[in-house]
Design a protein around this nucleic acid. Sequence first.
DNA 1: ATAGGGTTAG
Length: 577
Amino acid sequence: MATHINLYSLLKKCNSLIHMKQLHAHLITTGKFQFHPSRTKLIELLAISPAGNLSFAAIIFRQIQNPSTNDYNAVLRGLAQCSQPTQSISWYRNMLRCLLNIDALTCSFALKGCARALAFSEATQLHSQLLRFGFDADVLLLTTLLDVYAKTGFLDAAHKVFDEMVIRDIASWNAMISGLAQGSRPNEAMGLFNRMKEEGWKPNDVTVLGALSACSQLGALKQGEVVHGYVVDEKLDKNVIVCNAVIDMYAKCGFVDKAYLVFNSMSCRKTLITWNTMIMAFAMNGDGYKALDLLDRMASDGTCPDAVSYLAALCACNHAGLVDEGVRLFDFMKVSGVKLNVKHYGSVVDLLGRAGRLQEAYDIINSMPMLPDVVLWQSLLGVSKTYGNVEMAEMASKKLAEMGSNSCGDFVLLSNVYAAQQRWKDVGRVREAMVNNDVRKVPGFSYTEIDGRIHKFINRDQSHPNSKEIYAKLDEIKFRIKGYGYIAETNLVLHDIGDEDKENALNYHSEKLAVAYGLISTVDGTPIQVIKNLRICVDCHAFIKIISNIFNREIIVRDRARFHRFKDGVCSCRDYW
DNA sequence: ATAGGGTTAG
């Protein structure tokens, strides 16, 4: 009896493989291995702790004459969190064959494996099995199930599980809220967050992380401020993870100053991620020098920059047009010992390309120790278009085709390169390829927050209740801005349609709809904030510059990569993006 | 001998 307790307490303190092996040897040499209850705990420790060793756990498992469900579960848990989580599914199937008694933990670990392996259909099988086993009153298990459905992208199935749960606890709400937030349905995430409060639940740190992430995506400042207020009131800001999320929220809502205020007044210790979040915030805002300054300061503060820190700083140089600083930083990175990945190369290629240094950009691609990705060739294609370099554009397009990229933007860019040289035959050839290849077009959409409510617009959207007024406003704008030298950039539209129709296609881009709605529904002089899922197009950029001038409004647009602040007819990106 | 499992920022 005494040895049971001793072994158990020893196991709990065990944090190295050597110690685990010693305990194993002890169980063997004293002849207790086959019968001692701590054996299972040892296998679990080996299977799941960072100091453990999963294959060794499996070896030990095979030495057991009559493994219990718990022994199986211990290995299953390890397999579910290892680098090949599909192994957990085969292990589970094997358990069903060999064992009669599966318990709720078996299902829980197997579901975890499905989540990691993104195995939706296996999860549905587990779902029906756990119902048959009668585990459907188990809150923890149903929360895991909900989470698997959400993580595999089946949010409606997740929601159904959530809705049908007889008993829910805080973690069930949290799983559903963060599932919606991470599944690109942030508005619903906020809806559920509010409903949760109405129903008398008290959000905890995990809850606010989901809500803050949703606000970040939506650019929902008003709602984000409410969540921040709650965080402060409930002292959830003792948690550095929460602080990081608050910083990110303010930054993504366009309030980099507020983000920096939170960054500077944190009561808990900053982590690597805190610094990276703030550097990224400056980068998105075009504050190149502030980002570089922070990169220096983090090191002197005792936090060693990692690959993400450098990427963020490089990105900042790129957005601010700090070409020499960026190249210097990149050269330093190569000797600093950080492991560069394809994104670092992509960023520096973009930086050089935008500065017109196409040959240097191309040389870097050729010197890369890894294969260039689609994004990198797209960026080279983009800058080739900017500088009218036909050969480079053709080469990049060829690579993109080889890699199976089939995005509309690639074809449009190449076509524009030819069009600029009046090579109409080639333009026609590209159009034909577009038709034949059935190109993908990611639908563009924009959000704007008015009085704490999010309004979403897609291109040519007519579903908004105020649609009539919005289109009338756009007509008015169109009329007024003609006098300011605005000519629609119709070469961005690649359809066989007349110029007027091309103009209409551009006129109803989602960001224009959102800005027009902002103009009619907010008081004169107040800023208008728009979030767009793609990069802003040249035409909308020119259009909004003029609007900021004639309507005397500050208009802040966050596109996929950065912020554009339009004021008095100019943009903070200085037309460099 | 018993508990053990779920939600989490760049």
